[in-house]
Nucleic acid binder design. Structure first.
Lengths: 268, 268
DNA sequence: GCAAAAGTGTTCCGACTACACCCATGC
DNA sequence: GCATGGGTGTAGTCGGAACACTTTTGC
C-alpha cells in the first residue's frame, strides 16, 4: 500500500471521505470483463460567494436558508444540482443569477467533495445514488449586488465571523474558500474585478485590509508597491469624499498586466 | 447577466465546457415543485502521475494505452470510474496501486472537468448519462516505483516534452497538472515526500532544477536559502558518488517545519 | 596534478519597513 | 485653524543574485 501524504490538502477530510475500504478488492484489475459495480451520481454545485462591505469593513458571505430536508431550517451555501446538458460552470452561473443580480464577479472552481455518506439523502434513497459537490468560490461587488428575495426562501449576507452551523459539510467548504480568497488576493489581481471601473488607491487598500486583516503593510507602503507594478493608470480625475484631500481615480490596465500574468509575483 | 471573469483559470476551457445554453431557462426558479430534469453522472478519476528521473534529468509522466473505445490506441492518463461505496480519494489510490508499486507519494486533487460532451460515450448511450472527471495529480519517487505490466495494456513513463496527443481532454489536464506541480514545489515541501529518507542537498537541487527548468538560482544560493529554513537536519553521514567531494546526508525535519506550515513562504 | 562536486564567504543591489513630512480639502 | 485622508520622501535593514574561492574526493 502506498503511503499517501495529503498534508498539503489543508481540509480536514475526516467528514468528507470516511475512508471506508471499497467493497471490491484491488485484485480485480480493471478489465472490460467483470467490471466492478459503478456508483451513480447526482452532481451538485455549491458556491461560496464573498463580497466586501468597504463601508463597514466587513467580509461577507452569502447564505440561503434551507426549506426542505435534509437540513431543513439550516443555513447553507447557495447551490443547485446540475441539469441535463448543463456544464458545471453554467450551473454555478445559474445559482448566482437566481440569488443575486450582479454585474461584476470573479468565479472559480474550488474543490470537489465526493465521499460516500456526505449527503443524508444517499441512505434514504432506495436506489444507491451518491451526491457529489463541486464547490466554487466567487467574489462579487457588494455595492453593485442586489439580493433576489423570492419571498419564501431566506437569503442573507453574513459577516464571516458570525456564520452559524451550516448544512452538510458547508462550513468546511467555506473555510477552504476563505483561504483561497486570501491567496487569490495576494497573488492575482482579483480585486479589480470587484472594484468599480475607477477607484482610488484607498479603495484598494480598504478591500485588502478587510479581507486580509489589519496585520499587513501600512497604506503608504501599499501604495508604493502597487504603483510600482505599473498596472494602474492614473486618470487624473480627482474625487472628494468628505474631509481630506481629494484622491486620484485609477483604472486597472489589463494590457499592462498581460506580460506579468504567468510570472511568479506578489500583488499585495 | 453577470460578467463572469474566469481569467485566473488558466485552462483553455473551450473543449471542456462547450458553453451550450442549458435547455431550461433561468426563469424557472428552483423550487421543490417542478424541478428541472437533473443529469445523471458517472464519475471518473484521472491522475497525472509525475516522477523525476534525476539521473537523466527528466520529468516523466505516466501514461497508459487505451484498448477500448472510445479513443482506442490512444495514450491516456491513468484513470478509473468510481465504484459504489468508494470515495474519490480511494479511487485515486486504487488507480495508483493498480498501475505501479510505490512506497512514497504525494497526491492531491486538481480540478473537476464536467462539461457535457467531453466524453463521446455520452452521445452513444441510449440513456443520457454524463461523464465527469475529477482529476488528481501525484508525485512519486522514480527510483522506488515499479510499473505493473499486466501484459495486455501498455504503460510507460513519458518525458513531459514528448507526450503525444492523448485521449479525451487529457492533454489539458496534464498541462494544468504541470503548473500545479511547479507551484507546489515552490510553496511547499512536496519534494521531501519523494526523496529518500536521507538525501544530499545536491539531490534536492537536481529535483528542483529538473522540474522548474534551469532558469533558477544557482546551487550555491539554493543551498543557503534551503538551510536557512532550518527544516533540514544534517546527519553528519557523508556519501561519495564518483568524483568530487563527499556530500552530507540530510533529513527533512517535519517537526521543525510544523510551525511554518500555514505561514506564507517560499520554498525555492 | 587535475577535474569534479561540495561547501563557504563576500560584495552589490534592490526591496521592503517604518516612519516623518507635505498637500489639499471640509468644517 | 484643525482634523482628515491623500501623497511623497528617506534612512535603515534584510535578503537574494552573482561570483570568487576553498575543501575533499576519484583518477
Amino acid at each position: 500500500m502506498p503511503t499517501t501524504n495529503h498534508q498539503s490538502q489543508d481540509l480536514d477530510r475526516s467528514l468528507v471521505s470516511s475512508k471506508q475500504p471499497s467493497k471490491q478488492s484491488i485484485a480485480s484489475i480493471e478489465q472490460p470483463s467483470n467490471p466492478a459495480k459503478l456508483a451513480d451520481f447526482k452532481v451538485g454545485v455549491d458556491t461560496v460567494i464573498f463580497s466586501v462591505d468597504t463601508v463597514q469593513h466587513r467580509l461577507l458571505v452569502l447564505l440561503v436558508m434551507r426549506h426542505q430536508a435534509p437540513f431543513t431550517d439550516y443555513w447553507s451555501l447557495p447551490g443547485t444540482l446540475v441539469r441535463e446538458g448543463e456544464s458545471l460552470e453554467d450551473a454555478a452561473d445559474r445559482v448566482l443569477t437566481e440569488k443575486i443580480r450582479v454585474n461584476n464577479l470573479y468565479l472559480e472552481q474550488l474543490f470537489t467533495f465526493g465521499g460516500p455518506n456526505r449527503d443524508p439523502r444517499e441512505s434514504e434513497a432506495a436506489y444507491n445514488v451518491r451526491y457529489l459537490s463541486v464547490s466554487h468560490f466567487a467574489l462579487v461587488r457588494f455595492e453593485d449586488t442586489a439580493l433576489i428575495a423570492d419571498g419564501v426562501s431566506g437569503i442573507a449576507w453574513y459577516p464571516l465571523d458570525r456564520v452559524p452551523q451550516l448544512a452538510f459539510d458547508h462550513n468546511q467548504i467555506l473555510t477552504y474558500g476563505y483561504q483561497r480568497l486570501r491567496s487569490k488576493l495576494e497573488y492575482s489581481p482579483v480585486a479589480f474585478d470587484v472594484l468599480p471601473e475607477m477607484f482610488t488607491l484607498g479603495d484598494v487598500y480598504q478591500l485588502y485590509a478587510t479581507v486580509l486583516g489589519e496585520d499587513f503593510a501600512d497604506y503608504s507602503n501599499f501604495r508604493t508597491r502597487l504603483l510600482k507594478l505599473r498596472v494602474l493608470k492614473d486618470t487624473g480625475i480627482k474625487t472628494s469624499r468628505g474631509a481630506g484631500r481629494p484622491a486620484s481615480l485609477y483604472q486597472f490596465d489589463a494590457e499592462a498586466f498581460e506580460p506579468l500574468k504567468d510570472k511568479p509575483m506578489v500583488f499585495l
